[in-house]
């Protein structure tokens, strides 16, 4: 069934947009209801586009009303528990911190840049699919993705993350001799 097919990813997408776990399921439910009502066999192939269009619109609407500061995972707490003089553990924590820093940078992007990043990099939507969901030209989407990547790079470098280490599939913060 369509709901089962899209549900988990949609809830998580709404969460990434709003930063609110408590309302992500309500947003998804609302998007399903709106997308399914006019749904029939003729327009079945357009369900995904229509559903995500509604999901993004509803997420932003709710986010504008209720957005709270993005919750920061308890990385420090985790570090205190796990730092057992083990470089692998330090590496893992550094990677998690890198992910968190990058997610914060994504969530700080403008609406137009944030949504293309979430659709492209989390939902694996093609440029064409994003253009359909957002009613934009493909060139516009490409341009937004380019700008978003540039801003994300600048933002995380500003916060001390060394982008050159990404090629090692790791985030490493400057000043760490081993990690």
């Amino acid at each position: 069934m369509l709901v089962e097919m899209y549900s988990d990813k949609a809830v998580r997408t709404a969460y990434l947009i709003t930063g609110r776990v408590d309302i992500a399921e309500d947003i998804t439910q609302e998007a399903f209801i709106q997308a399914i009502i006019p749904f029939n066999k003729k327009n079945a192939q357009f369900f995904k586009t229509r559903f995500y269009k509604i999901l993004m619109r509803t997420s932003w609407k709710v986010a504008a009303r209720t957005k709270e500061p993005i919750q920061v995972d308890s990385i420090e707490r985790e570090a205190n528990h796990n730092l057992a003089d083990c470089f692998d553990v330090i590496d893992t924590i550094a990677t998690k911190q890198g992910y968190e820093a990058l997610y914060k940078a994504v969530s700080a992007l403008s609406k137009h840049l944030n949504e293309v990043v979430v659709l492209h990099y989390y939902n694996d939507f093609s440029i064409k699919e994003i253009a359909q969901v957002l009613n934009c030209r493909e060139g516009t989407i490409r341009s937004r993705l380019f700008k978003a990547r540039k801003l994300l790079t600048q933002e995380i470098m500003k916060n001390g993350w060394d982008v050159s280490y990404f090629e090692d599939r790791r985030f490493r913060k400057e000043g760490h001799s081993h990690v």
Partner: peptide, 30 residues
């Protein structure tokens, strides 16, 4: 590679929540 890290970052954040598995029922009831 940077693009892969963006994906990993979003997946990592998204996986911190566990959506309930009753969405189909919720939609049906509505």
């Amino acid at each position: 590679m940077f693009e892969r890290m963006i994906t990993n970052s979003l997946i990592s954040k998204a996986q911190t929540i566990n959506p309930r598995q009753d969405m189909a029922d919720r939609v049906k009831k509505s």
